[in-house]
Design a protein around this nucleic acid. Sequence first.
DNA 1: GAGTACGAAATCGTATACGAAAACTATGGC
DNA 2: GCCATAGTTTTCGTATACGATTTCGTACTC
Lengths: 224, 224
Amino acid sequence: MTETAVGSKSEQAYAAVKARIVEGTYTPGYRLVLAKIAEDLGVSVVPVREAIRRLEAEGLVKFERNVGATVSGIDPTEYLYTMQTLSIIEGAATALSAPLIDAVAIARARAVNSEMRDCLEHFDPVRFTALNQDFHSVLFEHCPNPHILDLVHRGWNRLASIRATTFRFIPGRAQESVQEHEALLQLIESGADADTIEQAARRHRAATLDAYLAQSNAGSLSAH
Amino acid sequence: MTETAVGSKSEQAYAAVKARIVEGTYTPGYRLVLAKIAEDLGVSVVPVREAIRRLEAEGLVKFERNVGATVSGIDPTEYLYTMQTLSIIEGAATALSAPLIDAVAIARARAVNSEMRDCLEHFDPVRFTALNQDFHSVLFEHCPNPHILDLVHRGWNRLASIRATTFRFIPGRAQESVQEHEALLQLIESGADADTIEQAARRHRAATLDAYLAQSNAGSLSAH
DNA sequence: GAGTACGAAATCGTATACGAAAACTATGGC
DNA sequence: GCCATAGTTTTCGTATACGATTTCGTACTC
């Protein structure tokens, strides 16, 4: 996950602002004033503007004509859209990657999942989330379709900006998640067919969404 | 399909360049010189640059540092990635939309499909392609997840830049496509479950990809 | 004759500057 | 006391300008 070193200043601005959003320095609703960011980073407004537009394309920022940019909010509807889309994309990514995952990768994924179990006991939701991404990254690292992988990462980034301010364990869900990871690994090991793996992976994400919806007692809206 | 009237100049530049790419005025590989485009459009380079970066984010343009922008090429690998991704996204979009499609929309879709049949007889691949998008647009117009819809449109745009220079009927495939449309409508009418509809819609796109691959005798790589 | 090195032209990347639109504030009327 | 309105301030949108980098052409050497 090493970020490529700074190339252009717009790249630099992009990375800097994105990092601040993902880590929660800029919280949702935060007003991104171009001139102010430019000064902070020691560059002019032009590269900053370019960076902001790029973040807008990724959904991390909302840009309004002649008004300015704000960090995209935590709107539950947006969360639902993002999770539902991720459910579909991750399902496909897992199914496409499964045949290419070797025993070594499986072992690594298990190790990560084991660490996640530890996080449950020590109650460390932040690390849990990071490891969760690592787990799926291991599965996806040989994904044969880079477009799909890109969509996965976009979804993750979007969620990250939300999590930075609101993440907490949904009671019981995290435990389930760890169990589902193990089940998924066994499916992959056993050489299950693509459809089965896809459905399991999709359901894995959708279940988190359902748990969230149940908690905020809105209507259920799972992917299937 | 009316384009929203010009807002900012960067919006204007975006729409103009995108149109030229989609309609084939700028063919793949075409070098997009910022200053030249700026002059053509009567604006300065800054909005043009912004427009180009936006098109880059959508995959229509390739931008290389200190070198410049070119219209994204027709690389068969990219085509495969795009079609495979579209297969997944359209499948999901169709399944999600299906419960919300009423009899009126079905009738409209049938009318479009009928026109497509005519295009086959009159051998009009360009109009056939446009109608094909119309057909699916009717199905998707009430898609409950705008993110998914957005991904569909991005995929279509990418294909458009390719089609403008290379589109032709793949023997037999267009006829099949029309038949599959009708089968899809009947599935939706009959209230088939989401999984069935999703698989059918996904297969519909994947089959076109397979036909393409068969023609260019590469290995088969359907989504399933 | 082919390959390399140097220089000129083209093009990009970013800074600065200024006009335009929106947001904010204060003042006056009801 | 509250709302409408005018003026001020902030911030955006775009033009212009210039330094940096790449590319292309030419001359020179082996």
